[in-house]
Design a protein around this nucleic acid. Structure first.
Length: 345
DNA sequence: GTTTATGATTGCCT
DNA sequence: AGGCAATCATAAAC
């Protein structure tokens, strides 16, 4: 995930910016420059130096390095605060709607929520609940596996950010405490600092949430979009549909009820039946020759079926005479017109 | 790897 | 609203 890179950049930006700031910042010259000035001033500087030395009780270099560090930090924080105040002018205290939206989605997708027992177990349970076909559940578990992967990445990243946030806060607090020895620092100021840091990190977290949501959306579109993951109907279903089509070739437009029944028999949806007939009609019309064999096959089949039905009828009541089976070869005007120009293939 | 078959989608028409 | 035609995207065949 490139969020990591973004985070690193973001965090790294501190030290990066720091160096540039350090370059432009006029720090007081370090010790040992007191040899050329007037006597009084020389004495003053000496006193100050002595004071600093006694106050910090450390090597001056080290203290100075810390000061630079702190300064860098402060400039970055101020800049961050400016950015936040510009951006967050409207979305101040009320919990950011976008963040809420992201949170809700992650929760709904089971990414943000608590880890549900074994991932595979959950997948199996979901598959069992849906009661779908075997291949369907395989796809589903595949989807779940990918989702689990996303969730794991999300959680590790989130944890990382939290840890980084805490470390950073501690660092800043330490620096402020250090500073408090040389100048008074109000609790309010510390609080403000911490607030800024937390806001900064939560904005980073939001980026993570955003890209996690994107990943989930992509996953959904890849796995749940029926068009992308097209499955052929079962042989049996195609059989049933073809049987209807060729036995109603003169008017292959099943009524709503007929569609419903076909859908039930084929265990597909009504709209799938509609799609199938739409496709079949247009493809048949486009190249009748190609479908001739199929047409004959199903005509024979329906004939056999009719014969069987007739036989059964005869058995039931001998008075009835068997009806001549429908050959299924009479074409509607629509198909006849195309039939005329059907010379290829 | 290319071609064909096929289910789904889209835009337009009536 | 339902159908047609073109098209997309993938499965299956080669």
């Amino acid at each position: 995930m490139d969020d990591q890179a973004r985070i690193m950049q973001s965090i790294g930006g501190v030290s990066l910016a720091g160096h540039s700031v350090q370059g432009g910042m006029a720090l007081p010259p370090p010790h040992g420059h007191d040899g050329t000035d007037g006597d009084g001033r020389k004495q003053d500087i000496g006193d100050i130096l002595h004071q600093i030395m006694t106050i910090t009780d450390q090597s001056l270099d080290e203290a100075q390095a810390k000061l630079v560090d702190l300064y860098v930090l402060l400039t970055w924080l101020v800049r961050s605060a400016e950015r936040l105040s510009i951006r967050g002018a409207q979305e101040e205290d009320p919990p950011d709607p976008q963040l809420m939206r992201l949170d809700n989605m992650l929760l709904a997708e089971g990414v943000a929520g608590p880890e549900k027992g074994g991932g595979s177990a959950a997948a199996a349970a979901a598959a069992a609940a849906s009661g779908g076909a075997a291949d369907n559940s395989i796809e589903h578990s595949d989807y779940r596996a990918k989702l689990t992967q996303i969730r794991q990445i999300y959680h590790t990243e989130l944890e990382k950010y939290e840890q980084a946030c805490n470390e950073f806060t501690t660092h800043v607090m330490n620096l402020l405490r250090e500073q408090s020895r040389t100048r008074p620092i109000s609790p309010k100021e510390i609080e403000r600092m911490v607030g800024i840091i937390h806001r900064k990190f939560s904005s980073i977290q939001m980026q993570l949430k955003q890209s996690t949501c994107e990943a989930v959306m992509i996953l959904r579109s890849r796995f749940l979009d029926a068009r992308r993951k097209r499955r052929n109907f079962s042989k049996q279903a195609t059989e049933i549909l073809n049987e209807y089509f060729y036995s109603h070739l003169s008017n292959p437009y099943p009524s709503e009820e007929a569609k419903e029944e076909l859908a039930k028999k084929c265990s597909i949806t009504v709209s799938q039946v509609s799609n199938w007939f739409g496709n079949k009609r247009i493809r048949y019309k486009k190249n009748i020759g190609k479908f001739q064999e199929e047409a004959n096959l199903y005509a024979a089949k329906t004939a056999v079926n009719a014969a069987h039905a007739a036989a059964a009828a005869v058995q039931n009541s001998q008075a009835n005479s068997p009806t001549t089976p429908n050959s299924g070869r009479h074409l509607s005007p629509v198909y006849k017109t195309v039939d005329a120009k059907q010379t290829h293939a």
